[in-house]
């Protein structure tokens, strides 16, 4: 067999099947690694219960997912972007410039962010102000702004254990970090009075650089591994990750509230955020099963308080019925962001 023939036939086969493969019959989803486990659970159940192929779900981060969604309309672009933060005006501009006119926003529920330490370590009860005083670059001491002098948690708040401060927080590419910045650092900054002294809100987000606070760019599994190696440290996790590892982690309270799906649903636990997915409306009716998948995702069986998502750690949305009605009506394009 000559090599020329082999190559030619391979290329011919490739060319023929390229034509056949153009009509995509599976849903493609990409985005937040926080939403990824929920999306895979739904995709799996969808594949089992419907005659459509199981959707292909990719991670990669909220920003990457929204960018891929806005790349254009057509078979080669994704149908749904998962996101752990709300879509940004810049994304919508990008969408518009690429001909993606209408995008539907679907809120699937809420996710809590918890602070946890090694199961055999001391117990912590935090407030946002404690966190700000522990890891910010500049803090208030006796009414004056100084470079952070705190060495142990007891220096920050005498009620906390006298352990060296070592915090593993999500890196800046994570959607989780945004919530941590807003709900913990900015809240703590305001509570300690540092916000006024600093003047600029962005100054609140500057962290100390002496190694007491470590950015983790990987997943929660990396944070857990770091915590294993440093049992004195405190890590930041998603509620669902904690719920799957309760035998290794001891969770801390925030403002005296223990994080749980209940305390997050009622709004008592302060550090939580909504989770979304965004659907390209131009693909509805073109990609088979897309409408069914969206309906299935927000159905009570799946996203309700007794569904598999809640069991995994999602805090069910109290306004789920409104979302179901919106989705069933064929989806309304989202209102302009304000």
């Amino acid at each position: 067999m000559s090599f020329v023939k082999l190559t030619a036939s391979t290329l011919a086969i490739a060319a023929v099947s390229a034509g056949a493969a153009l009509a995509r019959d599976n849903i493609q989803i990409k985005g937040s690694s926080t939403v990824l486990p929920y999306a895979t659970i739904v995709a799996e159940a969808f594949g089992e219960n419907f005659d459509f192929p199981t959707p292909v779900v990719e991670g990669g981060g909220s920003g990457a997912g929204r960018k891929a969604l806005c790349e254009g309309v057509g078979e080669n672009t994704i149908d749904i972007a998962n996101s752990s933060s709300r879509i940004k005006p810049s994304d919508i501009e990008l969408c518009a410039s690429n001909g993606v006119a209408d995008v539907m926003e679907v809120r699937i529920g809420y996710d809590g962010i918890v602070f946890a330490s090694d199961i055999d370590g001391a117990e912590f009860a935090f407030t946002p102000a404690d966190w700000y005083n522990a890891i910010a670059a500049q803090v208030m001491v006796d009414g004056k702004l100084v470079a952070n002098p705190n060495k142990t948690w007891a220096d920050v708040n005498p009620a906390l254990p006298a352990q060296d401060i070592l915090a593993f927080i999500p890196g800046t590419k994570h959607g989780t970090r945004e919530v941590f910045d807003v709900k913990v650092l900015e809240a703590g900054c305001a509570a300690t009075g540092a916000a006024e002294a600093l003047g600029d809100e962005n100054e609140c987000l500057k962290l100390r650089t002496d190694g007491a606070s470590v950015d983790i760019d990987g997943d929660y599994t990396e944070t857990l591994a770091r915590l294993d190696a440093n049992p004195q440290a405190v890590g930041v996790f998603g509620l669902s990750f904690y719920e799957n590892n309760t035998d290794k982690l001891r969770v801390a309270t925030m403002d005296g509230v223990v994080p749980s799906t209940e305390s997050i649903a009622t709004g008592e636990y302060p550090v939580s955020r909504p989770l979304y997915f965004y659907v390209k409306l131009a693909h509805l009716g073109v990609i088979p099963g897309l409408q069914e998948y969206i309906d299935f995702f927000v159905s009570d069986e799946i996203a309700g308080p007794d569904g598999p998502l809640a069991e995994y750690g999602l805090v069910s949305d109290p306004e789920l019925a409104a979302t179901q009605a919106m989705v069933a009506a064929g989806g309304t394009p989202m209102a302009p962001l304000n």
């Binding site: 099947s17 990824l36 999306a39 895979t40 995709a43 199981t54 292909v56 779900v57 990669g60």
Partner: peptide, 12 residues
């Protein structure tokens, strides 16, 4: 790097 559950068809 995706969650894929359906087996691909026979080649090509």
């Amino acid at each position: 790097v995706a969650f894929v559950r359906d087996f691909p068809a026979a080649p090509p």
